[in-house]
């Protein structure tokens, strides 16, 4: 009985692997034909994607509105929990992700990233009355970041480089829990990308403030897409539009609107610093 079951399972696995490599149609042609670009994202990543009074809003919504206008297609948002976003991309549930994610060498092996849309360099968020004035002041203090993030890795590296490292580096399911712990006084600082924490501080200035300068290696946020050949045309098109938006000032205006500042970014990240 058990052996039969194993054989059946092996059979299912084999037939699955035989069916998996389908869809060789060019992604750009498919999107243009359908008149719809499907974009997957999660909505708990302010100011890129968040829910304001029940409506999905943020920099990504504005940027993709422009992309949709330039391509002449409708944008269809699929909002999922982050756990489901990258699996959904790989399963072809949507054409690309509006994440965005920090562009790293490791991730570039698996995804094709768009041209950068914001700086992702890591800085510190601290309590409004904190005596941490520069990044080195986290010496001997408890700090935190989201688990498995590129920001956490940088925080760890920075802490080790100090004479006295941070007393503890706590890892959180998401940055929102880390901010809550910072507000509650259980940690002294949260390390996250500058655009995110600048937005947090602007929303609750009585609780939080940002410590500048940023301490991390310069990194950038990009939109992850599929790395397969049939997606190259689509991702090229997205890059073309993003660069056009930079040239005609639309990107600058949107960055100003959502981050309160603009960034110097390379046109394409080919060799990420991390």
């Amino acid at each position: 009985m058990k052996r039969k079951l194993l054989a059946a399972l092996a059979g299912v696995a084999l037939s699955l692997s035989a069916v998996l490599p389908v869809q060789a149609q060019d992604a750009l042609a498919r999107v243009m034909e359908a008149g719809v670009l499907k974009v997957g994202t999660e909505t708990a990543f302010a100011p890129f994607d968040f829910v304001d009074a029940g409506t999905h809003t943020g920099l990504n919504v504005d940027v993709f509105d422009e992309i949709g206008k330039d391509m002449g297609v409708k944008i269809e948002w699929i909002t999922l929990d982050w756990t489901g976003v990258l699996p959904g991309l790989e399963a072809g549930r949507f054409d690309m992700v509006a994440g965005p994610a920090t562009i790293t060498a490791e991730r570039m092996k698996r995804y094709r990233f768009s041209s950068p849309i914001a700086e992702a360099t890591v800085a510190l968020l601290v309590g409004a009355n904190s005596d941490i004035a520069k990044p080195e002041d986290i010496s001997g203090k408890p700090v935190g970041a989201g688990t498995g993030t590129a920001q956490l890795a940088q925080l760890k590296a920075f802490s080790e480089s100090l004479d006295t490292p941070a007393s503890e580096i706590r890892e959180y399911v998401s940055f929102n829990e880390a901010y809550a712990d910072l507000a509650a006084g259980r940690i002294e600082a949260v390390a996250n990308s500058l655009p995110n924490i600048a937005f947090v501080a602007s929303q609750r200035p009585e609780v939080f403030k940002v410590v500048t300068p940023a301490f991390g290696t310069p990194t950038y946020f990009g939109y992850p897409g599929r790395i397969e050949d049939e997606y190259a045309s689509l991702m090229d098109k997205i890059d073309e539009i993003l660069l056009k938006m930079r040239a005609d000032g639309r990107m600058e205006k949107l960055q100003q609107k959502w981050f309160g500042t603009t960034f110097d970014m390379p046109e394409k990240v080919t060799e990420p610093a991390i």
Binding site: A44, G84, N176
Partner: peptide, 24 residues
């Protein structure tokens, strides 16, 4: 079920907590 894209009570709470920074 929010992992497949439905906004139910917990996901809405997470969204609102993430945009208002008032999780409690």
């Amino acid at each position: 079920v929010s992992v497949v894209g439905l906004i139910e009570l917990t996901k809405m709470a997470q969204n609102l907590a993430a945009s208002t920074y008032q999780p409690l």
